[in-house]
Design a protein around this nucleic acid. Structure first.
Lengths: 244, 244
DNA sequence: CGAGGTGTTGAACTTGGTCAAAAGTCGTGG
DNA sequence: CCACGACTTTTGACCAAGTTCAACACCTCG
């Protein structure tokens, strides 16, 4: 077992000591692989487990009665997923893989140990939960008030900024493994209008595309246009309790 | 000092023991009053404090460069506000009162004590944070995919279900202290279209209005129309660590 | 009584949706 | 190496929901 994504994400924020690391290792003991396009769990399923993402991308979504889907979040290596369902006995969202994925499942009750044994780590998880919350608030604002091109721009910026936590080397050029239907379902547009918007953005000189490779031509400019804040970058860990 | 809203909200979910109660009381030691329409703190302000809401309504919002506002959340007695900003050194949202309000401010660092001394309470706060997260996911879905009447219906249901935690006696008839501008800013519509939608809903026989009093004529029907789930009602506290 | 905030209405307009067809793209098997 | 099928993207024509702007009505509270 090489180094864990969870450890590498968390130590991006604080120094982990031995008890922290061994606790995390305990959480990541089991592993399970899933193929591309696999439903890990659906709305209404029993929600006793959480999963640490070791490798691959996933997304969570809900479907309305008329069949339209809303993509709620994307999940990357180092994330713990299923956390929002912590407070419910059955899943509130559907978790589905986007690429082949390796997950480390552990029961909710294992979080007990984190809270009891390593308060500092528990507080960090809380903190990161709040980061996700703020990211979601940003997206709410974007979907509610931006036009199509702005929404898509916002989503792209959100995705790169998250990727850079674990892959700081990512520059303006990267792969976006999402089809236009998925993008539409994430920002509240139809695939048709996503296509038109992409075309428009390419003509304006905001981006360049080749297949799923995407190039952001002027990231600062793009950020300014949508008032994008990189929430993952500057996280306040000052208030966390000192390690025991 | 009579009984605290925070205690009454939290004990809706678990039995609080003596250490828990005394810790909460410590958090609520100081009190501060604010008038209606007062900005408690703005985006960019230093975010060292959290606030327990003792009395009154508030909301959090952000403003875009063009002046349009997005209302993100409403806050009620018993809520702890400012939590999303926990992870940031400056505020990510503006907090503003809707009615006259009494808040109990305490520094972020006081949460340390909660994590170290009462893991069970810390885990409960985490849990409730996740409830708010899911409520936000529901709203994202509503704003992204519903039409005007459905969005407004969803918002109304969200508000009543939250009110009922601390006021279980609330029935179909209650006061909604929000003007149509505010409602529009919350669900991503203009005040004009909020007005038209309300009119439509009244004509269809979904609701009845008189000033700010609102009556839901058939709540089950309304819930079914927008697939509303009451997230506040059925919270899973099974996984929480036992008290020491 | 007057003023400011709030709600309502109308007409013209815009953004994005719908439906349907055409054109790529990519992996698989022959 | 090519052909086929499934999926994805693009394009066009038309449509509908919600916006904008502006005027007016309505409270209510000082």
């Amino acid at each position: 077992m090489t180094d864990s994504c969870l450890v590498s994400k968390l130590s991006h924020y604080i120094d982990l000591d031995e008890p922290d690391r061994s606790l995390i290792t305990r959480l990541e003991k089991r592993e399970r692989d899933f193929p591309r396009r696999h439903v890990v769990r659906e709305v209404g399923d029993e929600a006793r487990m959480l999963y640490a993402v070791r490798d691959g991308w996933l997304f969570s979504s809900t479907t309305m009665r008329d069949g339209r889907r809303q993509v709620l979040q994307f999940h990357y290596p180092g994330d713990i997923i299923g956390i929002p369902d912590l407070a419910f006995s059955s899943a509130t969202v559907t978790l589905e893989t986007l690429t082949p994925v390796c997950l480390c499942p552990f029961p909710k009750t294992a979080l007990d140990d984190v809270f009891v044994e390593t308060p500092r780590l528990a507080a960090l998880l809380f903190n990161l939960g709040m980061v996700d919350h703020v990211v979601l608030l940003d997206r709410l604002r974007a979907i509610s008030r931006f036009n199509a091109q702005e929404r898509i721009s916002h989503l792209i910026l959100e995705v790169v900024s998250r990727l850079r936590i674990t892959h700081p080397e990512i520059g303006a050029h990267f792969e976006l493994p999402l089809n236009q239907n998925m993008i539409g379902d994430a920002v509240g547009l139809t695939n048709v209008y996503v296509s038109r918007s992409f075309k428009g953005m390419e003509e304006t000189g905001l981006i360049r595309r080749r297949g799923r490779m995407l190039e952001i031509l002027d990231e600062d400019d793009l950020r300014r246009r949508v008032g994008f804040e990189d929430r993952y970058f500057s996280v306040d860990t000052e208030w966390l309790p000192r390690s025991a």
